[in-house]
Design a protein around this nucleic acid. Sequence first.
DNA 1: CGCTGACTTGACAATATTCAACAGTAGTGG
DNA 2: CCACTACTGTTGAATATTGTCAAGTCAGCG
Lengths: 239, 239
Amino acid sequence: MITAHLKNLRLRSEISSNEEQVIRGLVAETRRVRADEFVVRAGEQLNSSLLLLDGWLVRSKDLPSGERQVLELHVAGDFADLHGFTLKRLDHDVIAISECTIGVVPHDRLMDISEHHPHLARVYWLATNIDAAITREMALSLGQRSALSRMAHLFCELNVRLGIVGRTSDDSFEFPLTQRELSECLGLTVVHVNRTLQELRRMGFVEAENRRIRIVDKARLEALADFDPSYLQLYRRPL
Amino acid sequence: MITAHLKNLRLRSEISSNEEQVIRGLVAETRRVRADEFVVRAGEQLNSSLLLLDGWLVRSKDLPSGERQVLELHVAGDFADLHGFTLKRLDHDVIAISECTIGVVPHDRLMDISEHHPHLARVYWLATNIDAAITREMALSLGQRSALSRMAHLFCELNVRLGIVGRTSDDSFEFPLTQRELSECLGLTVVHVNRTLQELRRMGFVEAENRRIRIVDKARLEALADFDPSYLQLYRRPL
DNA sequence: CGCTGACTTGACAATATTCAACAGTAGTGG
DNA sequence: CCACTACTGTTGAATATTGTCAAGTCAGCG
């Protein structure tokens, strides 16, 4: 299960077999959570971080008025709150979208990496920085892209990220979000998401049914989305 | 000049005098850049990071169609691209808004911290994570807040961040952005920013003239913005 | 069978954008 | 010193995009 996580790391930098052993020793226990469960609440004091082994999580923030914005979607292999190691209290909630299997990583094991494995510490620093890059791209979407382009962009990104961890087949992937949840990702209302999704279908760019997205015309979808995956840092670098 | 930077760090965690010496030795050279100059371009290979000593910088991304979104505003004391140390290529540009003084920090000095000063390495990891939290709050603004509330929120945030580094007096601060640049921060058109700013003035919440913002009614501005500064992590924690 | 939640549709309203124009200011160069 | 240019801020009118409200279908489930 942790292989998805290793794929993510190895795509971006060299991991020695010794480091692999350290990584394999990170998870102290495995938790199973149900859909819609709050996994971490904003402001709560943390002493462990969560490695998502299977399922979907979101980071989200609420306004007092009740509106919710999803700031990042997490899939298998992602560290959902590695930034909690230094922040100690998150500024956002972490909520399960589907049933999830989560590896609990105590902060003292991350502290051990920080103290004794500087290269691996940089690998994980990089991981939080890639995370931030994904959030920046989302902010660009929210600020500048139209509803149609925004939705297209999200599907393109997920197709790449799920591909890395072997969760796609032929540009299609499981997508457990309801249209309400999707609307919270895109900063739109449910009604408008419904219409936008229909438009993407009508144009023949995607199919969406049975909690599954299939990208039918990838080239045109990417053009519509202005999708350039370089923000995902899909290459190996020395650290 | 580096004292602003130290204030930012010390607000969030303990810095020993030995660590302070290391920090004071980070800047290899000082650069001066003019307003509107591109300081870093997206995709460019990096071997140093930039500590902003004075002036204003932005991180921004462009769409092929020419729209620009500012993803973060940087003021004195901020590391503008510390994440470049691990990323090696940024996903965004860094552009000077005003004339700036910038400390150039070679990556080999950061590497030295990573290898030999694990606590300080965590302090800087924390810094990039706080940065990401600021971006998340901006994404929340872009996705869920109205134009009026979004603008109010930005002013509240800047008032706090500038206050930390001693750049405010009595809830007022220099604000060198044009309305066009402000519109790129807020994901709005210039015309709409003009009207929104007038509305904030008309309501008696802020004054804005001569490249300066004065917050007149802070309590009501913060209420309008739903401003809760906890995402800025304004407390000292053990690391 | 009657709920409930997810998805869908239509009519209408609000928010923000576009386009066009003009005033004021600062800087440039003759 | 003045004409010229360019940029910034401002305003009005028309338009587009997205949101709101209300209602209805459909499937799954106790």
